[in-house]
Design a protein around this nucleic acid. Structure first.
Lengths: 342, 342
DNA sequence: AGAATAATCTAAATCGATATAGAATTTTCT
DNA sequence: AGAAAATTCTATATCGATTTAGATTATTCT
C-alpha cells in the first residue's frame, strides 16, 4: 500500500473489550504490524512522525507487549529467577522482597525457583538454563567454589550472587564484609579484656562463614585470644539445639569469657544458655553478635551488636542482573558492604 | 502421507545440541506435529500405539513443552503469582518459601508481584488480570471486604487467600483461627486471676485482627476482665516504638496486670517495657503471645505462648489454587487451623 | 460387494511479536 | 533529466504449541 502523509493522521476507533496488540495499533494507524513493532522499538529505519504517532496510540490504548509473543520469538523471557532453598532461612526470605522491590519498576518479573535441602542444589539452576525459563539468575548461600556459579559462567547465563565465590572478581555480587565484621567483633572483645572465645559460626560450607572466621581468628591471634568454633550447630540451627550446645560448651568449665554469634537467633540462644548457667551477659561473659533486625539491643543492653543491613542487597542485585542481561560487555556490578566499627 | 504400522517403529536419530520440540518428536516418529501434540495430551482420537510411541520418545529425549508456545496459543501461563507488600513482613516472607515448596513438583512456576505500601494495593492484582500474566493469584494480609478479592471474584480469576474475607465461604482460603487464639489467651489470663489487659493487636484493617479481638473481648467480658487495645502501634510495628508505647501505657498507672501480643516481636517489646519499669514477666504482670518461631519460651520461661504453625499454609494454598485453576466447578478448598489450648 | 460409519491421522490457521528481504518513495548526485 | 543512493515502509516467514476442519484408512452394516 502506498505510503502517504495523510494516512498517518487517520485513526480507526479503538476496538473494545480486547487486549490491544500490535495489530490493534496497526489497524488504527493504517500501518503494517512490523512497522508498528519497529517504531515502538525505536528502529533506525522508521520515520520520526511515524514513531510519534505509533507511540501516541500505544499510550492512549494502554498497549503492553504480550510476553509470550516476545518470549517465543526472541527467547527473552523478561524474567529473573531467584533460586532459594525451601529451608526456612530468614535471610533468603528478606532477600526476596527486596529483590522484588528492586525489579518493581522494570519490565522484569521475579520468579522463585525452590529446591529442597535434600535435592541436588544444581537442579533448579540446570532447569532454568536448559529450559531457558529466565534471562538471569540470583543465587545466595554461596560457596567459595560454588558449582552453580561455575556452571552459569560456563553457560554464559547472566547471574548475580548474594555472597562471593573465589571467582568473585569475574561476576556480579553483593556481599557483606564478614571478615571486617569478625575483626570488629574480636577487637571489641579484646578491648574488654576477654581471653577465651567460643564462636557460633555460619554453616562452614558457605563463603561468608570462612570470611568471618578469618577475621575473627586473625584478630584473636593478634591479641593473644584463644578461639574455639562450636561444633554441631551453626548460626542457622534452631534455637533449642543452639541453647544446648552453647550451655554444654560453657559448662564444661573451659573458662570461656565470650561468645561470638553470627545471627540474632544464635545470640538469643547464647543468652538463654548463659543465664541458664546463672551468669549474666556483659558481666562474667560477653556476647558479640550480628543483629539483622535490632532485637538484641532491646533484649539485653549488654550484648555487643553489629547491625547488618540487608535492605539494599536486593535492590543492588536487581540492578546487577539487569546490567548483566542488557550490557554483558560492561564490567560486572559488585558491592561489598563494609560495616563501621560501633 | 500414508499412515502405516511400519512408520510407527521408525525413529530418526536424535538431533543434538538443540532443545527438543514437538517437531523433533514428529521427525523422529514420522508423525505430524499436531498428532504428537494430541498424543501427549491424551486426546481421544489418537491410537493407543501412537500415544505409547510418542510418550516413549518424549521421555527419552527429555521433551519439555515450551512455555511461551503454550502460553501464546492457549493463554495458560502455568504461573501462580503471589502478591506481596515490599514492606518487610515476616509472615509473608515465610509464606513465599512455603508456597514455592508447594508448587515445586507441579508444572506451575511461582511469580512474586510486589507493591510498595505507598502504592494502591489493587495495582498488582489489576496488572496480573489485565495482562493475564498468571493463571492464579495468592493474596495475604486480607481485609474483611478486601477489594482485591471482590475484583478477582468478579473477573473469575482463580485465587486463594491467606486469611478470610466476609465472603470466605465462596473462595479458597487458609486461615489460622485467631478468634480461638484470642479466647485461649484470655482464658489463660483469667485463670491466672488477671483483671486488666492491654492488647498489642495486629493492624486493625486486616481480618485476623478483628477475629482475634473478637475472641479476646468476648472472653474478657465473660470473666469480667477489662480490656484495652493499645493505640499507635500494632504487632507489626518496629520493636522500638512498641517498647515505648507499651511502657507509656503501663507506666501511666492504669493498673494493668497483663499484656496480649500478636507477634513474637511485640512480645519481646512488651518484655523489654515491663522489665524496664522494674517489673517481672509472670510476676506482677503476664504476657500472653502468639509465637511463630519458638523464641519466646526460650527467652522468658514465663511468657504464655501459643504457637502458630505457618509451614503448612503455603502447601495448602498451592493445592487450593491449582484446584481452582483445573477444577473451577469443584467447591473451593478451605482450611481453618484451630489452635489447641496448651 | 458397496455404502455408511468409525477410527486415526494430516493440513492449515492461529496466538503476538520480530527478523529479514524486498518494494516504494524521496532525495541527492552528475 | 536520469541514475544512484537514501529513506521509509510492507510482505513474508518464524518461534512452538494447539485448534479446527478435512483427509485417509479400516471397520461395520445391509
Amino acid at each position: 500500500m502506498a505510503r502517504t502523509k495523510e494516512k498517518l493522521s487517520l485513526e480507526a476507533a479503538l476496538p473494545q473489550g480486547q487486549k490491544p496488540t500490535l495489530k490493534t495499533i496497526a489497524q488504527m494507524s493504517g500501518l503494517a504490524v512490523p512497522t508498528v513493532s519497529r517504531a515502538l522499538n525505536d528502529a533506525p529505519d522508521i520515520g520520526r512522525d511515524t514513531k510519534l504517532l505509533v507511540r501516541r496510540i500505544a499510550d492512549e490504548i494502554g498497549y503492553i507487549p504480550n510476553r509470550a509473543g516476545v518470549r517465543l520469538r526472541t527467547g527473552r523471557t523478561n524474567v529473573v529467577s531467584l533460586v532459594m532453598s525451601t529451608e526456612h532461612d530468614n535471610h533468603t526470605a528478606r532477600l526476596i522482597s527486596s529483590v522484588a522491590g528492586g525489579l518493581q519498576s522494570t519490565r522484569y518479573h521475579l520468579n522463585v525457583t525452590p529446591y529442597s535441602p535434600r535435592d541436588d542444589f544444581m537442579k533448579p539452576v540446570r532447569y532454568i538454563v536448559e529450559t531457558r525459563s529466565a534471562d538471569a539468575v540470583i543465587l545466595n548461600q554461596i560457596e567459595p567454589e560454588d558449582p552453580r556459579v561455575a556452571y552459569l559462567m560456563d553457560k554464559k547465563v547472566p547471574f548475580a550472587t548474594h555472597g562471593r565465590t573465589n571467582w568473585a572478581d569475574k561476576h556480579p555480587y553483593y556481599d557483606f564484609d564478614n571478615e571486617t565484621f569478625g575483626r570488629h567483633a574480636m577487637e571489641t572483645l579484646a578491648e574488654r579484656g576477654r581471653k577465651k572465645v567460643v564462636v557460633v559460626a555460619p554453616p562452614i560450607a558457605q563463603s561468608y562463614s570462612q570470611h568471618m572466621l578469618k577475621g575473627l581468628s586473625e584478630t584473636a591471634a593478634v591479641h593473644g585470644i584463644e578461639m574455639n568454633v562450636i561444633k554441631g550447630v551453626t548460626s542457622d540451627s534452631n534455637i533449642q539445639s543452639t541453647v544446648e550446645a552453647v550451655r554444654d560448651k560453657l559448662s564444661r568449665g573451659g573458662g570461656y569469657d565470650a561468645v561470638v554469634t553470627a545471627s540474632t537467633t544464635a545470640a538469643l540462644a547464647a543468652t538463654a544458655a548463659i543465664e541458664g548457667l546463672g551468669m549474666n551477659v556483659g558481666d562474667e561473659i560477653d556476647i558479640a553478635s550480628k543483629d539483622a533486625n535490632g532485637f538484641l539491643k532491646i533484649f539485653r543492653q549488654n550484648i555487643l551488636t553489629l547491625p547488618e543491613l540487608v535492605g539494599t542487597a536486593g535492590d543492588f542485585l536487581a540492578r546487577a542482573v539487569i546490567q548483566a542481561i542488557q550490557h554483558p560487555e560492561l564490567p560486572p556490578l559488585q558491592y561489598l558492604e563494609v560495616p563501621e566499627r560501633v
